[in-house]
Amino acid sequence: MLNRLNLKPKTLNLFNLIRYKNLLVIVLTQLLVKYAVLEPFGVNTSLDIFSISLLILSTVCIAAAGNIINDIYDVETDTINKPSKVIIGRHISEKAAFNLFIALNLVGVCIGFYISHLVGKSAFFSVFVIISALLYVYASYLKRLFLIGNIVISILVALSLLIIGLFDLLPGITPENQHIQLSVFKIIFYYAAFAFIINLIREMVKDIEDIKGDSKSGMHTLPIIIGTTKAKRVVFALIIITIITISYYVIHLLYKNLIASGYFLLFIIGPLIYISIKSLSASTKQHFHHISTVLKLVMVFGLLSLLLYKYILLK
C-alpha cells in the first residue's frame, strides 16, 4: 500500500520498522470500542473527540516504540528467520532506531500523563509507564522465556482494548449508572479476552515458524522446549477451546439474530475450524506462516464484530 504512495525507501523502511499495519489495527480497534460500543449505548463517558484522539496517539506511540525495540533485539534471529525483512543495521542504524524508541516512548507516556489528569484519575498514569516498561523487558528478556513472553505480549494486546474502557468508562461510574457502565465494560472485557487468546495462539504458531533462528539465538520458546509436534498439539487444543467458547457465546447470546450468528460462524468460527485442521498437518515454515496470517484475519474480523453491538444482549 505504501509503495503506491511513491514514498522514499527510507520512509518505507521507517513505516515497516514501526509495523504500521499493526498500528492501524490498534487505531481501528480503539475507535470501534469508542464509537461502536460506548457512544451508541449512551453511557457516561469521559473522553471527547480530542481526548480520545490523544489516548489513541499515546497508545500508538508506545506500541510503535515497542516494535522498534523488539526489532533491535531481534536482529540476530531475524537474519536467520526472515533475512529480507531485516531493517536495523541495513536501512536504519541501531542508534537512530534506539533514539526513535526513546522519543516515541516519551511522547506516549507524556500524553498518558496528561490524559490521566484530564479524567481525574492521576493514578492511571502508571498504566502507560507499566506498558512501556513491559514492552522493553519483553523484547530484551521475557520473549526468550518459556511461554512468559507469549503471555505478556498477549496481555498487552488485550490492554489496547481495555484501556479505552479504563479511561473513558470507569471514571464516569456513579451509584446510579453503575449497572449499565459495568455491563458495557463487560463487553469490552470479552473482546479483550478474545484478543488475548487469539494473539497467544498466533505467538505460539510464530514460534514454531521461527524455531530455526530462535534455537540458534538461545531462546526457550514452546516448540524448542517441548518439540514441534507437541507444540502443534497445544496450538490445536487452544484453538478447539476457543471455538467451543465462542460457539457457546453465539448460542446463548446471538442465536436470535441470524446476521450476528452468521457473521461469527462465517468469519470467526469457520476460519478457526480450518486452522485447527491445518495446525495438525502443518510441517513447513510456509504452512505456519499461512496459519499465522489466517489468525490475524480472525483477530481483525473478530474486532470488526464490535459493529454488531446492538445484537449483543447485556446481562
Rank of each mutant, 00 (worst) to 15 (best):
I92Y: 07
V75I: 15
L54R: 11
S51L: 09
N81S: 11
S84C: 02
S51F: 15
D74V: 02
S58M: 04
S51Q: 10
I56N: 00
I87K: 09
A96C: 10
K95H: 06
R90G: 13
I52G: 02
Y73W: 11
V60M: 13
K95S: 09
Y73C: 06
A64Q: 08
F50Y: 10
G89R: 06
I56D: 07
V60F: 14
K95R: 12
G89W: 10
L54Q: 10
L55A: 14
L100T: 01
R90Y: 10
Y73G: 00
I52K: 02
L100K: 07
I52S: 14
H91D: 11
V75L: 07
A64F: 14
P83C: 05
K95D: 05
I92A: 08
N81D: 15
H91T: 11
I52M: 06
K95G: 02
N70V: 08
E94H: 01
S84P: 07
I56M: 12
I92P: 00
T59N: 15
I87Q: 05
I68S: 02
Y73Q: 13
L57N: 03
T59H: 02
A65H: 13
E94W: 03
T79W: 11
K82A: 09
T77A: 15
I80F: 08
A96V: 12
I62A: 08
N70I: 09
A63I: 13
S93W: 11
S53A: 10
K95A: 09
I68D: 04
S93F: 05
I52F: 14
I52E: 02
I72Q: 00
Y73D: 04
L100W: 12
S53F: 15
S58C: 11
T79I: 06
N67G: 13
A96T: 14
H91Y: 01
K85N: 04
S53R: 03
I80H: 07
N70R: 09
I72A: 09
K82L: 01
I88Q: 09
L54N: 12
N99C: 10
A97Q: 02
S51K: 03
N99A: 06
G89Y: 05
D78P: 15
G66R: 01
T77Y: 07
T77I: 15
I72N: 05
L55H: 15
I52P: 02
E76V: 05
A97P: 13
L57I: 12
I87Y: 03
F50M: 05
I62D: 07
N81H: 00
V60D: 03
S58K: 00
V86Q: 06
F50G: 03
Y73S: 14
D78R: 03
S53M: 10
V86S: 01
C61Y: 14
V86I: 04
A65R: 11
I69S: 04
C61A: 15
T79R: 14
